[in-house]
Amino acid sequence: MREEIVIVPTHEAEIYVEDTGPEDAPVLVVLHGGPGGSSYPYRAAWEEELADYRVVYLDQRGGGRSPELPLEPRYFTVDALVDDLEAVRSWLAVDRWIPVGHGFGALAALEYGRRYPELVRGVVTLGPWIHFPELARALWRAAFGGGEPPADPTQAVEEAFSAVGPKPLFDRLSFPSEHGRAHLEWIVEGLPLAGSEGVEAAFRTNGLWELDYSGHLLEYPLEVVVIAGERDGTSHPHQTERLADLTGARLELIPRAGHYPWIDEPEAFFRAFYGAVDAFSE
């Protein structure tokens, strides 16, 4: 398979990019979850399945293999991520592409499409996060077994993380089985990645836990597809149904799957995925 690895410089960051697959095929750009994640586990899981597409995998600023940066107000914002994405598109000279955003990455995919609709064929969101106060409440309830969380979403998240810890708490909501969690950890085991502490700190500093993106989805200029696991406690039903209702998106639910449906139910996931990207590629 064709592969080109580049570091795309922006005026603030250096973005690690893997450009793979046939150059004349429809172009997908994968926006990983996080904050502080990496595109590595997506390529490891998807490369063979997406061999007929040109797929651009990138690591968000400060995460994965994109170098850590000083903590500054703009260091990790949605606007900064969208600017990085447009810098990558321009560097690769792609005319139009299909953003595929997972979890937090769905927010960047949607905002990029809203800002640059002429460069986007359609947007695919996987277990999207668009209403972060609701995600904060879900995390708090998962940590404390129900009840009424604090009104301040940042306080709710910090209490939940202090009680349980970020990773075990997200694992609790994301994986319907221990098999799925172990499989993902096996994929990323031993991968040398930049730390995510700075990204998570910037996430709090920039008030992203208070972000409700719903208002930007009214009269959204592009077609959107939502694919999610029915047992994804981070996204379904509050995030997925909100996004589908506001944009008129097609919602594809994968039974028995969590936040990583390609691990839990790969056949059903890729059937839905191919249907979405092939419709946008026509």
Score class of each variant (00 low, 15 high):
residue 2 R to I: 15
residue 3 E to V: 14
residue 5 I to K: 15
residue 5 I to Q: 15
residue 11 H to T: 14
residue 11 H to W: 14
residue 12 E to H: 11
residue 14 E to R: 13
residue 15 I to T: 01
residue 15 I to E: 03
residue 16 Y to I: 10
residue 17 V to Q: 01
residue 19 D to K: 02
residue 24 D to V: 06
residue 30 V to N: 06
residue 30 V to F: 06
residue 34 G to W: 00
residue 36 G to P: 06
residue 41 P to D: 00
residue 50 L to C: 02
residue 51 A to S: 10
residue 52 D to R: 10
residue 53 Y to R: 00
residue 55 V to P: 00
residue 55 V to M: 02
residue 55 V to C: 02
residue 55 V to G: 01
residue 55 V to A: 04
residue 57 Y to Q: 02
residue 61 R to H: 00
residue 63 G to R: 04
residue 63 G to C: 00
residue 74 R to T: 15
residue 74 R to M: 15
residue 76 F to H: 09
residue 77 T to V: 13
residue 79 D to S: 14
residue 80 A to I: 07
residue 83 D to V: 13
residue 85 L to S: 05
residue 89 R to Q: 03
residue 91 W to C: 14
residue 91 W to I: 08
residue 92 L to P: 01
residue 93 A to C: 12
residue 94 V to R: 03
residue 95 D to K: 12
residue 96 R to F: 04
residue 99 P to D: 02
residue 103 G to V: 11
residue 103 G to S: 11
residue 108 A to D: 09
residue 108 A to F: 13
residue 109 A to G: 04
residue 113 G to I: 07
residue 114 R to C: 12
residue 114 R to Q: 08
residue 115 R to F: 11
residue 119 L to N: 12
residue 122 G to R: 07
residue 126 L to D: 05
residue 127 G to Q: 03
residue 129 W to L: 14
residue 130 I to W: 06
residue 131 H to S: 15
residue 136 A to F: 02
residue 138 A to F: 07
residue 139 L to C: 05
residue 141 R to Y: 11
residue 144 F to P: 08
residue 144 F to S: 00
residue 150 P to C: 02
residue 152 D to E: 08
residue 152 D to W: 05
residue 154 T to L: 12
residue 155 Q to P: 13
residue 157 V to R: 01
residue 158 E to H: 05
residue 158 E to W: 09
residue 159 E to G: 08
residue 161 F to P: 05
residue 162 S to M: 07
residue 162 S to I: 07
residue 166 P to T: 09
residue 167 K to L: 15
residue 167 K to V: 13
residue 169 L to T: 01
residue 170 F to C: 00
residue 172 R to L: 10
residue 174 S to E: 07
residue 175 F to T: 00
residue 176 P to K: 00
residue 178 E to K: 08
residue 179 H to T: 09
residue 179 H to K: 13
residue 180 G to R: 02
residue 183 H to C: 12
residue 185 E to K: 11
residue 186 W to R: 15
residue 187 I to F: 02
residue 190 G to N: 09
residue 190 G to H: 06
residue 191 L to M: 15
residue 194 A to D: 14
residue 195 G to E: 10
residue 196 S to L: 07
residue 199 V to W: 06
residue 202 A to S: 06
residue 202 A to H: 02
residue 203 F to I: 07
residue 206 N to G: 11
residue 207 G to M: 07
residue 208 L to T: 08
residue 213 Y to Q: 12
residue 214 S to K: 05
residue 215 G to M: 13
residue 218 L to I: 15
residue 219 E to A: 15
residue 220 Y to R: 06
residue 223 E to T: 10
residue 223 E to C: 08
residue 228 A to F: 06
residue 231 R to T: 12
residue 234 T to Y: 05
residue 239 Q to P: 06
residue 239 Q to I: 07
residue 240 T to H: 07
residue 240 T to C: 13
residue 240 T to L: 05
residue 240 T to F: 05
residue 241 E to G: 10
residue 245 D to E: 14
residue 245 D to C: 13
residue 246 L to A: 10
residue 250 R to L: 14
residue 250 R to N: 09
residue 252 E to F: 12
residue 255 P to M: 04
residue 256 R to D: 13
residue 257 A to C: 07
residue 257 A to T: 04
residue 261 P to E: 04
residue 261 P to K: 01
residue 262 W to S: 04
residue 263 I to Y: 00
residue 263 I to W: 01
residue 265 E to D: 08
residue 266 P to S: 01
residue 267 E to G: 02
residue 268 A to H: 11
residue 272 A to T: 00
residue 275 G to F: 09
residue 276 A to T: 03
residue 277 V to D: 03
residue 277 V to L: 03
residue 277 V to N: 07
residue 281 S to H: 10
residue 281 S to N: 09
